[in-house]
């Protein structure tokens, strides 16, 4: 610190005051954080090694890795995990590509109404996931839904497709669409700010050299904002896992699970609590591993 001389000259109780101030600023927040975030997280990992029948019940027995083995042998869990991977891959790819496309379109074209589009595209992001889920349930409704009404207009005959009915992949694509709809604007805004910081001169030079817009995007835009892409990818994977819980709970309570809704149902069906926590632990590890992996894969050699 620059004020080293003053601090040394000051009386001792000044230092004590400073320590007291730091403690008062940090300890209340850290204690609450430890109680409501860290401790429950540790309980998840810990309880995963026990067999425990009731929620918060006192009778528990240590079972080692049995819960983890059980989770991986459970066909419902494996199916939910498959759904989760489908959503992560499909939603991530579509959202990031579309967000990048719209961001490039808006920054490059210099339209007068650019702020309008930005405001509109970002809008779904402020809505509650529950509202978006409910909204899309209505859109996909087999009898009165908007989507069937649109299909009817194009085919000329009444359409009554149960979009969220039986077919697993139809359901997954429908949920994925709602998630993409929700997320595009947020990532578009992030990419736009990344693109705004690229010097316009680079594009002017490229224009003079006769480089096409496509080539400019891959040779200038993408390399210069690669760091932004990497950060958003990690954010995106984490938030897709979180949001898919609420989307699945609202949109497909009976016919499609992701691992975290599976855990919720297990906990409330009064089954082995440790089993659900083992599944949660696995999800923690998967999300962390995916974040690390995506970070590694997108790292550049230079």
């Amino acid at each position: 610190m620059g004020s080293g001389k003053i601090a040394a000259a000051a009386p001792k109780n000044r230092n004590r005051q400073r320590a007291g101030f730091i403690a008062a600023c940090t300890i209340p927040a850290l204690v609450l954080y430890a109680v409501f975030v860290l401790y429950p997280t540790i309980t998840v990992f810990y309880t995963a090694f026990f067999s425990q029948t009731s929620l918060g019940g006192s009778s528990r027995t240590f079972v080692g890795f049995d819960n983890f083995i059980g989770v991986f042998q459970n066909s419902q869990f494996l199916e939910s995990l498959g759904n989760q991977f489908f959503l992560i891959v499909v939603v991530t790819i579509i959202t990031m590509v579309a967000a990048m496309f719209f961001a490039a379109l808006l920054t490059q074209s210099n339209l007068k109404e650019k702020p309008f589009y930005r405001t509109v595209f970002f809008f779904p992001n402020v809505l509650a996931i529950v509202v978006i889920g409910t909204l899309f349930v209505q859109i996909y409704d087999p009898t009165n839904g908007l989507l069937n009404a649109i299909v009817s207009v194009f085919t000329g005959s009444e359409s009554h497709i149960a979009w969220l009915g039986e077919d697993r992949f139809t359901i997954l694509w429908c949920v994925a669409f709602a998630m993409v709809w929700q997320a595009i604007g947020y990532y578009m805004v992030m990419y736009m700010s990344g693109m705004d910081s690229i010097s316009p001169e680079l594009y002017e030079v490229a224009d003079l050299e006769g480089m096409g817009k496509f080539k400019q995007f891959f040779k200038i835009t993408l390399p210069l904002m690669w760091e932004v892409v990497r950060v958003t990818l990690v954010f995106f994977i984490i938030s897709t896992i979180n949001m898919s819980y609420t989307f699945a709970t609202v949109m497909t309570p009976e016919n499609m699970d992701v691992p975290l809704t599976f855990v919720y149902k297990q906990a409330y069906a009064g089954n082995n609590y440790g089993f659900g926590m083992a599944a949660t632990t696995i999800m923690f590890i998967i999300s962390f591993a995916l974040a690390l992996l995506s970070n590694k894969l997108t790292a550049r050699d230079d």
Binding site: V37, L38, P40, G56, I238, I241, N242
Partner: peptide, 19 residues
């Protein structure tokens, strides 16, 4: 904590508080 979301820990938080 940026990695820990309520979706993962809601059940244990509830269990802790109710006990």
């Amino acid at each position: 904590g940026l990695f820990i979301s309520q979706t993962y820990i809601a059940v244990p938080v509830f269990t802790m508080i109710s006990s």
